[in-house]
């Protein structure tokens, strides 16, 4: 059987809210090392990769590898019934056709159980090479969210250019154009507000803002968003979930005709 208890149930709520508009349904894969998911959006332009390590859970048991297909909209409906401070336990029997979500209030005076029907989903698993990137930018998650939101009011795509000490986000639209530059800033006294750039080679790539805005829904999960870019490769946008794992998104670049 599979059983996993997450004391900070809010994490699971935030993860599902961050991905439910991007992917309709997905297989959640559980094995002894943890709980993970890899799924592409229906147009195969972006990919979500979630991994929650077994040791990030208060209790974790997975006797055999299981893949549980769930409709994200249904999962979201159920998790909305959990309070932000509830602990969430997921349970499923081997070969079971449901997964049970148990919500416990901090004082354990309220216990609720919701069963979600599992579904068979054909999913294509992509092999993502663990390559080194030309540039890595770590910036406050809220700042990244604001940049992609603001630029979306002007254009549909963003050109992200990284140099040794700054990252520039630029867009062009019918009403004009916009550029936002963030300089490297390693403020030791305010680590949550730091912007760090690690670069092997200057890089400039163009992406659809619609998807980056969708990725930014993961903002509540982490203080920082980490952008990893390489010439002519998909961008990786990572949100580290302290002590539990990470939620990562890949987005294919716009290609010059």
């Amino acid at each position: 059987m599979f059983e996993a208890r997450l004391a900070q149930g809010a994490l699971l709520k935030k993860v599902v809210e961050a991905i439910k508009d991007l992917i309709e349904d997905a297989n959640f894969d559980c094995n002894s090392s943890g709980f993970s998911l890899q799924a592409m959006d229906s147009s195969h332009v972006s990919l979500v990769a979630l991994s929650l390590r077994a040791d990030g859970f208060e209790h974790y048991r997975c006797d055999r590898n299981v893949s549980m297909g769930m409709k994200l909209a249904s999962l979201s409906k159920i998790l909305k019934c959990a309070n932000g401070d509830d602990a969430i336990t997921m349970k499923s029997e081997d070969n079971g056709d449901t997964i049970t979500f148990m919500f416990e209030s901090p004082e354990q005076e309220r216990l609720s159980e919701f069963d979600l029907k599992l579904m068979d989903i054909d999913s294509e698993h992509l092999g993502i090479p663990d390559n080194e990137y030309d540039a890595t930018v770590k910036l406050p998650a809220a700042e990244f969210q604001r940049i992609v939101k603001d630029l979306s009011t002007i254009g549909d795509t963003v050109e992200i250019s990284v140099t040794k000490d700054a990252v520039k986000f630029g867009t062009t639209g019918d009403i004009g154009n916009a550029n936002i530059m963030c300089r490297q800033n390693k403020a030791a006294d305010k680590p949550d507000e730091s912007t760090e750039i690690d670069i092997n080679e200057a890089v400039s790539l163009t992406f659809a803002l619609r998807y980056l805005n969708s990725f930014a829904k993961a903002t509540p999960l982490s203080t920082h968003a980490v952008l990893k870019l390489s010439k002519e490769l998909p961008i990786l946008v990572e949100y580290h979930i302290p002590e539990v794992g990470r939620l990562a998104f890949y987005l294919a670049p716009k290609i010059e005709d």
């Binding site: 332009v45 993502i128 998909p234 294919a252 716009k254």
Partner: peptide, 14 residues
């Protein structure tokens, strides 16, 4: 003009 790339053309099946 630029076209949207697809992930399948960058990452192969695992």
């Amino acid at each position: 003009k630029s076209n949207q790339g697809r992930l399948d053309s960058f990452f192969g099946p695992s």
